[in-house]
């Protein structure tokens, strides 16, 4: 039955087909599902290598519109080819307006923060009319969760197993993308669907590069039970670790200001990838640093806004 959800903003049509091979409790799938509900089937998803490569496995696809798999580095370039070709066909009358498609790039953080950065930069600098969804599960999830440029400080991954975890810091992709002055840019989280839906709807009606970084809690790579995905997604926002924000017309605005933030411990403790910071004894140094960085971030926000 089609029913208007209790909150009328959240559509319920199950446009993206069930039955994909993603892990049980996949945060990225939840994000993509919501995007698909709003963007609809008059879309072509241009997919980079990552967990979502296997959204389609011959002959099964969850999409009701179109999809193409490219490679890890060049999904935005693939989007360029599709958009340009559609524009040519429209201009020459070989494609009716009603046959046009919204072009959507779908990549993980491994591609977005690293290998795909050059082609993404190129697409933005050319003002490509497309939507980019980065599902950020903070590691190379599809290969067993090695650290990526999106891995947070201190996290244990398949390639940072030591007692202090990943020594680097999560790259500020939002700022890198913002420096290109795209039409629209936002962070979202599937655990806050109202904020997410509002942003996708806003972007849908704009033209030009519209960029999203979606937090995608990963039971398999972050080591938590699949049932906790949403809870962890909520805590990411409530602790201030995952700021929900948007960038429009040269300005960054935070769309959820949590006045009483929970300590980062609450978020970190739920995930096996941070358990070495709590057992056998608390690693005060790293935990303090993580908390301090979050505090500093929000202090800057308050002073700036």
């Amino acid at each position: 039955m089609q029913k208007t959800s209790a909150n009328a903003l959240i559509p319920t049509s199950h446009l993206l087909g069930s039955g994909t091979a993603t892990c049980s409790g996949c945060g990225a799938l939840a994000d993509i599902r919501l995007f698909y509900e709003i963007l609809g089937e008059k879309t072509i998803f241009v997919n980079a290598a990552g967990c979502m490569t296997l959204l389609t496995v011959y002959p099964f696809t969850p999409f009701r519109g179109s999809w193409i798999y490219t490679a890890m580095a060049s999904a935005p370039a693939g989007a360029q080819g599709v958009r340009d070709a559609l524009d040519l066909l429209l201009a020459k009358g070989r494609l009716g307006k009603e046959e046009d498609l919204q072009v959507v790039v779908l990549t993980g953080d491994g591609s977005a923060y690293g290998m795909g950065l050059s082609s993404t930069s190129g697409a933005m600098e050319r003002g490509l009319d497309f939507i980019y969804i980065c599902y950020d599960n903070e590691g190379y999830g599809n290969t067993g969760h090695q650290f990526s440029a999106a891995t947070p400080h201190g996290a244990s991954t398949a390639t940072s197993r030591g007692m202090t975890g990943f020594p680097g810091y999560k790259k500020d992709l939002f700022s890198i993308w913002a420096a290109h002055n795209p039409t629209y840019l936002a962070t979202v989280s599937g655990a806050d669907p109202l904020d997410m839906v509002r942003k996708i709807k806003k972007a849908k009606d704009l033209r030009g590069p519209r960029m999203f970084i979606a937090l995608a809690p990963c039971p398999t790579g972050w080591h938590f039970d699949a049932s906790q995905t949403v809870k962890i997604g909520k805590l990411a926002v409530q602790t201030g670790i995952w700021p929900l924000k948007e960038y429009v017309n040269g300005k960054v605005e935070h769309t959820r200001i949590v006045t009483k933030k929970r300590p980062v411990d609450e978020y970190l403790k739920m995930q096996g990838r941070f358990s070495h910071l709590f057992e056998p004894r608390r690693n005060e140094k790293v935990l303090d640093e993580i908390q301090t960085r979050v505090n500093d971030y929000w202090k800057n926000v308050e002073e700036g806004e």
């Binding site: 087909g17 069930s18 002959p59 099964f60 696809t61 999409f63």
Partner: peptide
């Protein structure tokens, strides 16, 4: 290796 169709994933019994 192209799929001309929609939501064929529904055939999978996950």
């Amino acid at each position: 290796p192209a799929i001309h169709g929609e939501a064929t994933s529904l055939l999978m019994d996950t």
